[in-house]
Every structure is written in structure tokens, then in C-alpha cells.
């Protein structure tokens, strides 16, 4: 009986460390794609920060707009100076929650509802994501679309054929247990 209690206690503690804990991704990847008639533009940010709390079903992400890497320097310059205005709005953020609790087994599709803030404008958004657990780490990936106009980003008419009206955003985060000090 005592052994059983001990076992239950150990199991409880183990579950406690898995579920009562936050997870962090410091090098999450966010890529956006703009497919337009004149040119395709792709930019990657490999240093996106995200924190995941399974207890509260909460998720938050933050990224530096200047850390997006483009194939051409000129694209980087236009993006930061003319469109996103990184000096005024250096970060894009997301705050949301998982609509369902997480099961322990295998890859699973989840929906996240939350608010994304880009260029000082906040929009509600629902994102479909795949979450997978390997050992004590979680991988979360997915994609969604954003409409450029929604975020008060002004594209001069002369360049309207160079930049897509709707931009595809892909993300991939690898979370590890977060030891808060």
C-alpha cells in the first residue's frame, strides 16, 4: 500500500513537472511569403521568442522586425523603413490561448485564438497548428494568412504589383522547459 502511495506521489510529481511548467522557444522561426506578379519576396526570422503555458493554455510570441532576413538588402531596407517602420514599431507580438487542452500522445492539431500586433495595429486571429511532443520538448508549427491592408501598411500604387495583398506566414517553434529564475 505504501509503495502504491509512493508510486502515485511520484507520478503526481512527474505530471506536475510536465503540466505545471512553462516552455520556452528562443529561436523560433517565422517566415513570410509575398507572391506577386513582379516578384516573390521571402523573409525569415530565426530568433522569435515564444512562451507556452499548458496549465493556463496560454501562448505568447514576440519578434524583432529588424531581425527578418531578406534575399536582397533593398527589400530589407524598404520593409523596415517604409512599410513596418521598425524604429516606431520594433516588435510584432502575439498573445493567445489554446482552444483545447493538450493530450500527451502523438502529433495533434490544435487551434489557437489570439491577438496579433504588427505596425501598432492589433487584430484577432485564429491559427491552426500542429503540436508534437518529443521527450520533454514540444514542436509547434503551422501557417496563416495576413492581409497587409489590415495593419495600416501603405504600399505606394507604383509598387502594388511587387507586394502581395495577402501574405502567407509560416512558423516553427521548438520549446524546451523554461526554468524561471
Amino acid at each position: 500500500m505504501n509503495k502504491l502511495r509512493l508510486l502515485l506521489l511520484l507520478l503526481f510529481l512527474k505530471l506536475g513537472t510536465v503540466f505545471g511548467q512553462q516552455f520556452i522557444a528562443r529561436q523560433g522561426q517565422v517566415t513570410f511569403f509575398s507572391y506577386a506578379t513582379v516578384e516573390d519576396i521571402e523573409a525569415k526570422n530565426n530568433q522569435v521568442l515564444s512562451i507556452l503555458d499548458f496549465d493556463k493554455k496560454e501562448i505568447a510570441a514576440s519578434m524583432l522586425m529588424r531581425a527578418f532576413v531578406f534575399k536582397k538588402n533593398l527589400m530589407h531596407e524598404h520593409f523596415n523603413e517604409s512599410y513596418i517602420e521598425s524604429d516606431l514599431y520594433p516588435k510584432a507580438t502575439f498573445e493567445g490561448f489554446l482552444l483545447e487542452g493538450l493530450e500527451n500522445a502523438g502529433p495533434q492539431v490544435q487551434f489557437i485564438k489570439g491577438k496579433v500586433t504588427i505596425h501598432g495595429i492589433t487584430k484577432e486571429i485564429e491559427i491552426k497548428t500542429t503540436i508534437q511532443k518529443t521527450n520533454d520538448r514540444y514542436t509547434m508549427s503551422g501557417e496563416f494568412n495576413l492581409t497587409v491592408k489590415d495593419f495600416n501598411i501603405k504600399i505606394p500604387p507604383i509598387l502594388s504589383n511587387n507586394i502581395a495583398k495577402v501574405v502567407l506566414v509560416k512558423f516553427n517553434f521548438q520549446y524546451e522547459p523554461y526554468e524561471n529564475e
Partner: peptide, 11 residues
């Protein structure tokens, strides 16, 4: 230097 989130980021 690109800025700071929870860590300072250098590219």
C-alpha cells in the same frame, strides 16, 4: 545588434 526580446540578438 538587432535589439532585445528576452535575450540580446546579434545577426
Amino acid at each position: 545588434c538587432k535589439g532585445y526580446l528576452k535575450d540580446v540578438i546579434l545577426l
